[in-house]
Simulated scan of single mutants.
Amino acid sequence: MSGTTIGALLGTAAVAICAEHLPMLDAVLPGQAPESVEAMQAMVGAGVKVERGERYAVHRGIAYVPVRGVLSPNSEILERWFGWATYHGLIDTMGALAASDEVRGVVLFFDTPGGAVVGVQGAVEAVKACAAVKPVHAFVYPLAASAGYWLASQCTEIIVSPGAWVGSVGTMMNSNQPVQSGSSGYQDYILTSQHAGAKRPDLSTDEGRALALDRLNAMEADFHAAVSEGRGISIDDLKVSLSRSGNTAHGGDVFWGQDAVERGLADGLEDISTFIARVSALYAPPQQRQARAMMARAKAAQAKASL
């Protein structure tokens, strides 16, 4: 089967993506847009749905934003055909939500293995800027890896659902080179940054690998700095937290459940119904909060009277 792949839309630049999901880049795009975009189940649980062409939905003062799929700088096909997030889209979205008087809180629903490095810093800054003026909650259902976690790290809090994964902090790139001059055979190469050149360095040579690694390590340093600031963890402690062995060269792993919380990569563990109920109560209109408080006091009084 031939056709344009998802990876082709990202080009040959470095990526920040969970290694287990690299095969997604080889998936071939369909010849035309799907008839419908599958709703993100976490958002269905919140009682909202983002329609095709929409980037978020506002429900009772809370803006719900899906951050799903392979993340790209500005791929219209991936965004409009599949409902996948783009960095340019997130920049526009977070700016609009930060300025909106209607929106009292923001929830980013994460279901992404990561994506391109190009453009991610702008989206990271947009999430950070929005979180500086109103609460931004990250709910991981079930994956916020690599570039996805880069974004989540700037939120006011990160909540992971049971079985959800976070982490995979690091960058990587792949390339191929002719086996020999004039040969039709190619050798594939994949490099990762130190802790997890030219337009196309020759990865079959020491010089080419060194050039590519310098680039990856610089990107990784930016990644670490953003997560360190967003999560309030020193860079040295962060590097240790991202490794299961304690050897910082073995970082870039993914973590889940209470382990992710204990490492400082998340703030809590909640199922979808508990999370939605808590966030909805936080940002309910004042009259709803008053009514709930009166009801709670009435129930308490009734219970006391029955003693």
Rank of each mutant, 00 (worst) to 15 (best):
S146K: 02
A57R: 09
D111W: 03
V58D: 06
H224K: 10
Y56A: 10
Y64S: 04
G83S: 06
P135F: 05
V65N: 01
W256C: 01
A39L: 11
L108R: 02
G251A: 10
P34Q: 12
K134M: 12
I272A: 05
P285T: 09
V136A: 07
G230N: 00
G148H: 04
P135D: 04
K49M: 06
F109V: 08
G114W: 01
S241L: 10
A277R: 10
M94A: 03
S168T: 11
T12G: 04
F255T: 00
V140T: 05
G230Y: 00
R60D: 15
S193F: 02
L143K: 04
A277P: 02
M40L: 14
A212S: 07
D253A: 11
V58N: 07
M24T: 06
V37F: 06
A116N: 06
I158K: 04
A249I: 13
E262H: 05
R297F: 11
W165Y: 14
V227A: 01
E35K: 15
A281F: 06
P66I: 07
L29P: 01
I272Q: 01
H250I: 14
A260H: 00
E38T: 11
C155H: 03
S75G: 08
H59Q: 13
G246S: 09
P66K: 07
R297K: 13
V166G: 06
Q302W: 13
L97G: 01
D202N: 15
L265W: 02
R52T: 12
G83E: 01
L151N: 01
S161V: 08
A226K: 01
E79L: 04
G148V: 04
R80H: 06
S153I: 09
Q290N: 07
S306W: 14
S306G: 13
D259S: 07
D92G: 05
E270W: 03
S204W: 05
P34R: 11
D214C: 09
V58W: 08
A14E: 05
A164S: 14
S241H: 11
N247D: 15
S181N: 10
L9K: 05
E229V: 13
G89K: 03
S245N: 13
L269D: 01
V37M: 07
H224E: 12
H21W: 09
H137N: 06
R289N: 09
V58R: 02
V50D: 01
A129F: 15
G252D: 02
E76I: 08
N174V: 07
R80V: 05
V124C: 11
S168V: 10
H250N: 15
L238A: 05
L282G: 03
P73G: 06
Q154N: 12
N217Y: 08
A296V: 13
E270G: 00
S184K: 12
P201A: 00
V48Y: 02
A126H: 08
A226C: 13
D236G: 11
R52V: 11
G208C: 06
N176F: 14
G246R: 08
I233H: 02
R104H: 11
A260V: 02
A131Q: 03
T248G: 09
E220L: 14
T112H: 07
P135Q: 10
F139M: 13
